[in-house]
Design a protein around this nucleic acid. Structure first.
Lengths: 329, 329
DNA sequence: CTGAAAGCGCTTACAG
DNA sequence: CTGAAAGCGCTTACAG
């Protein structure tokens, strides 16, 4: 058997098959090749386990690479999203070039530039914030781009149905007859979570007319900041805490447990994200589950459609499901 | 201001700077360029925000791309590892091509072939199993490869100090006077965890001569299988469960809670991995923390050294730290 | 210190 | 249906 770990080029294959590399190229790119010729090429390819080097498609219209920019490589949400994206892209013979910004928006812009230079066919951007620069990109870029996490005007975007999800949670907290509610929010720069989701919650809380006080503390996605937020909220006499994410709820659990405050009895806790461990917590955390894997698959399919000049609707809302568990009294 | 989202090539830059592209190339690749010329080029580059297309280095000795193969994009461990790798690679001007196998070993081999075709300078492989095919690769591949997670003979590898960590845990369970111990293991194909870590545990358990029975159930990294494993173990009268990973421990918590068995009182639970939520669980999970971020940074630095023909020691063991919390009586 | 020419591994008009 | 030639955006000997 041939050494599969030695490189072999299209020129080598063409010689071995007794054709020219034009024909081999056509073989791979769906051009006309006579059946007999096709067989000859196929034989060599299989024997030598050949596959063209995608990075050498310098002159091609398509490079079959897709840039994927993520704010994190280690969060629950981004892990699932990337898994969905990667799988779908790979199945369609695209290769993802994954870039991690570590929540640095400036890097996001730099990576877009870098990806364009790399001649990617399209970009999937999981964004936490949409700046003027992003809008500028949308106008000037000439490859398709799909946003995830935020609704973006005049662009293709995939977002959670944050308003409705927030509203459902808010209504339920009211329905369960809470009086004084603390909310841990995030920066309004993260419009989807910091504004839309929050507004949904606030509108939902109004429904049953029994909420007396609402206290809001801004945090971020870290446990540290969220611990500070819940400590501040506890200065008020609250009977419910609505967290923007499960991770924030973990911080709340930590603080409440340390103070021996009974979750689900003295104070209700609810969050968004439904991480896999949330049902292991004591008491089990109530949380809104978003179908992130689907979002990833949708994003990958959307970018492929856009590359193929097919129509894609401007905004796609991910499904959600409010899972009520023991953390609500 | 120039449109930053239009591509500009080295030829364009060279014309604008009044030199030839050879010189511009040398500018970027550390060749001799007169200071005056250097300034002219620098000016244009900054004005147009130019950077060479790394994928067009078809003729170069180095492509500055590194293949990174991971069994998952959404596990706690791989997330941290990839974050460390990506950061370090990026800081050194390498770009990672991240491939996800979803625990499919066959894909692993395919991706190695694909990466070689892509002319990556080196490969970092986070492996759960080392097969004959892997050993074959090591012999035949002519670019450097660094393994993570498993110790590999005649290759550069980074692994947790699984034996010592296992032993420390085993000893502690003996020291705390447990009598009947259940172990949830993983397949022996995963040598690091399924054999080395397990052997460490078993050897550790011997130290205090007080363990009467040891029951072992094989699982994998999923909660589902681990629930089945703990249910089987509970048919024996055990007073401690040693899990191979925190995720397995989550399954154990779930089952024990559903049966109202008091963790840390009736049964001790201990695991390996120390996921960030493990200290939020009730009772707090005792677990061995491995410094995975360091492993990622080390792996990236190792591959860069190998590319530069520098020496790297064959095996590097990641630090660990056994964190004892309330889950042990 | 810099340039002209060839080449990396492909694709793409253009012929035939 | 297939080939010869040019070219993608770079790098690299080789001159000078």
């Amino acid at each position: 058997m041939k050494n599969r770990y030695k490189k072999i080029t299209m020129a080598d294959v063409s010689k071995l098959a007794g054709v020219t590399k034009t024909t081999v190229s056509r073989y791979f790119n769906g051009g006309y090749v006579k059946n007999e010729t096709r067989e000859k090429i196929k034989k060599i390819i299989e024997e030598y386990n050949y596959e063209p080097n995608i990075f050498a498609r310098l002159k091609a219209k398509q490079t079959y690479t897709i840039g994927v920019i993520s704010p994190s490589l280690r969060s629950f949400i981004s892990g699932i999203f990337l898994t969905g994206v990667e799988k779908t892209l790979r199945e369609n013979n695209y290769i993802p070039i994954i870039m991690n910004t570590n929540h640095n928006t400036e890097l996001e812009i730099q990576y877009i530039e870098k990806l364009i230079r790399l001649k990617v066919d399209g970009i999937i951007l999981s964004a936490t914030e949409i700046t003027e620069e992003h809008k500028n990109i949308i106008k000037n870029i000439n490859i398709p781009i799909v946003f995830f996490g935020q609704e973006v005007e005049n662009a293709i975007s995939i977002a959670n149905n944050d308003y409705n999800a927030g509203k459902e949670v808010g209504e339920y907290i009211g329905y369960k007859n809470h009086k004084n509610v603390g909310i841990i929010s995030v920066s309004e720069k993260d419009y989807a979570i910091g504004v839309v989701r929050k507004n949904g919650i606030l509108d939902g809380l109004k429904k049953y007319n029994n909420i007396q006080n609402i206290y809001i503390e801004e945090s971020d996605f870290s446990m540290e900041k969220s611990e500070i937020a819940i400590i501040k909220l506890l200065k008020n006499d609250i009977d419910a805490v609505i967290c923007s994410t499960d991770r924030q709820a973990f911080a709340v659990y930590k603080v409440l447990e340390s103070r021996n405050i009974k979750i689900g009895e003295e104070i209700s806790v609810v969050a968004f994200g439904n991480y896999d461990v949330s049902e292991i917590l004591q008491p089990k955390l109530s949380s809104v589950e978003f179908n992130i894997q689907d979002a990833g698959i949708y994003a990958a399919n959307a970018i492929i459609k856009l590359i193929n000049k097919e129509k894609v609707q401007n905004i796609f809302h991910t499904d959600y499901n409010f899972i009520k568990r023991e953390s609500i009294k």
